[in-house]
C-alpha cells in the first residue's frame, strides 16, 4: 500500500496543467484521486508525476445556461447537493449520491470519473444518457467531444494524454422529460455490477419521442442500449422494450457476475429505470 516515487505538481491554470502534461508523457491528472491513488498504492499504476487540477478555479462549479455546465473538478457531493442539479437534473444528483461513501463523494469528481472511463463507474452511464458534450483543452486549443464518441474502450476515453477535460455540458431538458438511474451495487467495491441510466422524452400524445439508455458495468465501457431505444421509439411497451436490453451489448464476466447474469440485470434495471422515468415524464 505504498506507491512508487512520483512528483506532485498543482498548477494554478489550465494552460499550465496542459503544458505539464505535454512535457511529461508519463504524468497523470489527479482529479480527486479515488481511482488513481488506490491503483498507485497497489503498484498497478506508476505515473512519474501527478498533476493535481484541484487548484484551478475554472474547473469548479455548476452553471445554468439553458443547459447545465459542470466544471470537471466538481465533486459528487457538490452534484448531490446543488439545488440547480437537484431541480434540473435529478438523475445526476441521484447518481452522485450512489457513488462510494461520503468520504469518496467529498473528494471524487465527475470529470475524474468520466476521464478515467472505469467500466463500472456510475457517471459514464448518466452523461451518456443525458447526451452530454465534453469540453477539452489541449496544446492545440479547445475542442468539444460528443459523449457518444467519448468512451472508447475499457479505461480509455477520447482524451489525448496531454488533453484536459474541463467541462461537461448537459443540453437543456425539454418538457415531458424523465430520467432515472438504477444501480446494482457490488457488495464489496460499491461499483455497479450493472447500472442503467435512462432518459425519455414523451410527445404530447404520451408516446416516446426520444430516449437514450446507457448501461455501465456490463461490459468494457458505458454503452448505449440502442435496441431498447429503437423499440421504445417504435411504440413498444416498456416491459417488452426492456427485454431487448441485452441485445447488441458487449458483456464481460468476472468473479462477481457472469455475462448471462449481467444481461439479466441489464434487462431488469432497464425496465425499472424506464418505469420511473416514464412516470416522471408524464
Amino acid at each position: 500500500m505504498f506507491p512508487n516515487d512520483f512528483e506532485y505538481v498543482a498548477p494554478a491554470t489550465i494552460n499550465e496543467a496542459v503544458a505539464l502534461l505535454q512535457a511529461n508523457p508519463d504524468a497523470k491528472v489527479l482529479a480527486g484521486g479515488h481511482s488513481l491513488l488506490p491503483a498507485m498504492k497497489l503498484h498497478l499504476s506508476t505515473p512519474s508525476m501527478l498533476v493535481d487540477i484541484g487548484k484551478i478555479p475554472e474547473l469548479k462549479g455548476i452553471h445554468v445556461n439553458g443547459g447545465v455546465s459542470i466544471g470537471a473538478y466538481t465533486t459528487y457531493r457538490e452534484l448531490e447537493t446543488s439545488q440547480e442539479v437537484v431541480q434540473r437534473l435529478p438523475i445526476l444528483a441521484d447518481c452522485a449520491s450512489k457513488v462510494g461513501d461520503p468520504q469518496v463523494r467529498n473528494c471524487g469528481t465527475i470529470g475524474g470519473s468520466v476521464a478515467h472511463a472505469d467500466p463500472a463507474a456510475d457517471m459514464p452511464a448518466v452523461v451518456l444518457a443525458l447526451n452530454a458534450t465534453m469540453k477539452a483543452i489541449g496544446p492545440q486549443g479547445e475542442r468539444s467531444i460528443a459523449v457518444d464518441d467519448f468512451f472508447v474502450e475499457m479505461l480509455q476515453s477520447a482524451l489525448a494524454p496531454d488533453e484536459l477535460l474541463t467541462e461537461i455540458n448537459i443540453p437543456p431538458m425539454p418538457a415531458r422529460m424523465g430520467s432515472a438511474y438504477e444501480k446494482f451495487k457490488h457488495p464489496a467495491s460499491g461499483y455497479a455490477i450493472v447500472g442503467v441510466a435512462v432518459m425519455v422524452h414523451l410527445a404530447t400524445d404520451g408516446k416516446v419521442s426520444d430516449c437514450r439508455i446507457a448501461v455501465t458495468g456490463a461490459g468494457p465501457k458505458a454503452q448505449r442500449a440502442h435496441a431498447v431505444e429503437d423499440a421504445l421509439k417504435g411504440g413498444s411497451e416498456v416491459d417488452a422494450a426492456a427485454q431487448k436490453a441485452g441485445d447488441g451489448l458487449e458483456y464481460l464476466s468476472d468473479m462477481s457476475a457472469s455475462e448471462e447474469y449481467r444481461a439479466q440485470l441489464t434487462r431488469v434495471l432497464t425496465r425499472r429505470a424506464l418505469h420511473k422515468a416514464m412516470e416522471q415524464a408524464r
Partner: peptide, 17 residues
C-alpha cells in the same frame, strides 16, 4: 501474483482488449 488478487474486476476485459 498481485494483479490476480486485486485486479479481478478488470482482468478479463483487459485481456480481451
Amino acid at each position: 501474483g498481485p494483479i490476480a488478487s486485486v485486479g479481478q474486476r478488470l482482468i478479463e476485459g483487459a485481456s480481451k482488449l
